[in-house]
Amino acid sequence: MVSVDDFRGGETAWCPGCGNFGVLMAVKTALVKLGKMPHEVLLVSGIGQSGKLPHYMKCNTFNSLHGRTIPPATGAKAANHGLTVLAVGGDGDTYGEGGNHFIHGIRRNPDITMIVHNNQIYGLTKGQASPTSDLGMKTKVQSHGVFETPLNPLALAISLDCGFVSRGFSGDINHLSSLIAKAIKHKGFSLVDMLQPCVIFNRLNTFKWYKERVYKLSDSDYSPDDRTAAFEKSLEWGDKIPLGVFYERSGPSFEDNLPALADGALAKQINHPDAGTLNKLIEMFM
């Protein structure tokens, strides 16, 4: 049996008290819960404090560029759909620099899980506003306070009919790890947006701030299969912030739509294309 220790990587370099520690533990716990072996997992990350996660894990990893997590994860999944592919990025990474990939990744629907460390700030570059920073937040750059309408990742994902849309909180590892496990099990693009306090640069959305506001969607009075209701729920932000699975629907994934994968993972297929077929292609030019 695998244990959390099997996924333990190198020494962490995050600030003490960082919300990322909770995320790291939740990711490992979810993988163990699902019985995944380290060699079956590929973690693709962007650049940011969040992007360092692969270094603290033991599994296959591809530490990509800032904003570029979803496309390489998609390519890797298409090449070997036997892999469990997770993409991890920051809020700047995923919703800012990589925003186009987020939109079209949802449309393409590869079977990958996108885990976003949403600390509502640019951590690595020391405290500029991110696409999800709350209105009015002052930073060195946004000296008059943020005036751009915050991007609502859940509402955006639901508007695109993303197959799995959820929000977790790094302060609740159990809940978060069960969300991540569900997201991994979902076939298709799954989003786990995680509220994760940045203890140094975000003085507005602190651990306490989140703690006072978050509540869990309960199975008894919320069902994630109604897209309109989910959209409405996703707009809730402020005094009360819901956590859990907002929306889920099934449908064919990107890989389901690729006839080339019918004979098994591309990476496992023989490397030599059929000579008979190639000769036919050549003869079409004769």
Binding site: L42, V44, F62, S64, L65, G67, R68, I70, P71, P72, A73, T74, G75, A76, K77, A78, A79, N80, L83, N100, H101, I103, H104, R108, L258, P259, A260, L261, D263, L266, A267, K268, Q269
Partner: peptide, 24 residues
């Protein structure tokens, strides 16, 4: 048995190809 995917932009196009190559 080849996968051809039209990407949303060229950054996606090349990084997708890099990811596929990484995976083999």
């Amino acid at each position: 048995g080849v996968v051809v995917e039209q990407a949303e932009d060229e950054i996606s196009a090349i990084t997708m190809a890099v990811g596929a190559s990484f995976a083999g």
